[in-house]
């Protein structure tokens, strides 16, 4: 299925959310085609409501396309058996726009989730999570619950959870939304480091400001269509 090197491939992808009264709503992704190479770094930019979040959700199999074909890490999302998707999801790190930390778990346990799902031993979980928290500067907040963290700390915890299992593909949706310029720069450096270590990265943002700080291929999305590629 998977041709040379593309980690993510969209072929004339259309998507519409189910309408409240049944059937399909308006198409919010319209004939999207793209191919992201292994180890690439891509900015997905566009105004609010353009469809960035929906495109990322297709990439981590939270949605299935209503037309066209989405292939991620060799799995065709539209036709894959449902039981094949968890394995795929474990290879993808996701930073949600709304973070989605589990409110009743400590920072440590939130970051440990992907490792425990992968059934790593508790000794390895302890080691890798502590390493991760140190790298991202949250080691002193390990036992705090999300509500006790600042916006920036929550953002970093969400990123730590997304990358702790060294995913092949990292999808981040407005990952600097809650932080100041200095924090944003630090997070960006972190993504750059991940990318250098081989992770394919897609970051969706509506902030051209952020894009200016790290030159990389850019995909511009407007009203569900890709308007252009650039750098």
């Amino acid at each position: 299925m998977e041709p040379s090197g593309a980690v993510v491939r969209f072929d004339e992808v259309g998507f519409s959310y189910p309408a409240p009264g049944g059937g399909h709503g308006p198409e919010i992704l319209r004939g999207m085609s793209l191919a992201l190479d292994d180890g690439s770094f891509t900015w997905l930019v566009g105004p609010s409501g353009a469809g960035k979040t929906s495109a990322l959700r297709l990439m981590h199999a939270a949605l299935r396309p209503t037309r066209g074909e989405v292939a991620v890490l060799g799995v065709t999302i539209g036709t894959a058996a449902r039981r094949a998707l968890p394995v795929l999801r474990r290879k993808i790190g996701v930073v949600h726009q709304d973070l989605r930390l589990l409110p009743h778990l400590s920072t440590f346990d939130n970051v440990a989730l992907p490792l425990r799902l992968a059934r790593r031993s508790e000794a390895r979980v302890a080691q890798e999570v502590t390493e991760m928290l140190t790298w991202i500067g949250l080691e002193h907040r390990a036992s705090a619950r999300p509500e006790e963290l600042s916006g920036g700390e929550q953002q970093r915890a969400a990123i730590a959870r997304a990358v702790v299992s060294r995913p092949a593909l990292l999808l981040a949706d407005e990952p600097t939304g809650n932080v100041d310029a200095a924090q944003a720069r630090r997070l960006l450096a972190l993504f750059a480091e991940m990318n250098r270590l081989g992770t394919t990265i897609v970051i969706a943002t509506h902030s051209e400001d952020l894009v200016g700080r790290f030159p990389a291929p850019m995909m511009r999305l407007e009203r569900g269509r890709i308007l252009g590629h650039g750098a």
């Binding site: 778990l105 400590s106 346990d109 390990a142």
Partner: peptide
């Protein structure tokens, strides 16, 4: 660290 909540990530003991 917090092994107990690690075993109950959904907080079902409360829910």
């Amino acid at each position: 660290m917090s092994n107990r909540s690690g075993r109950d990530p959904l907080g079902l003991r409360r829910a």
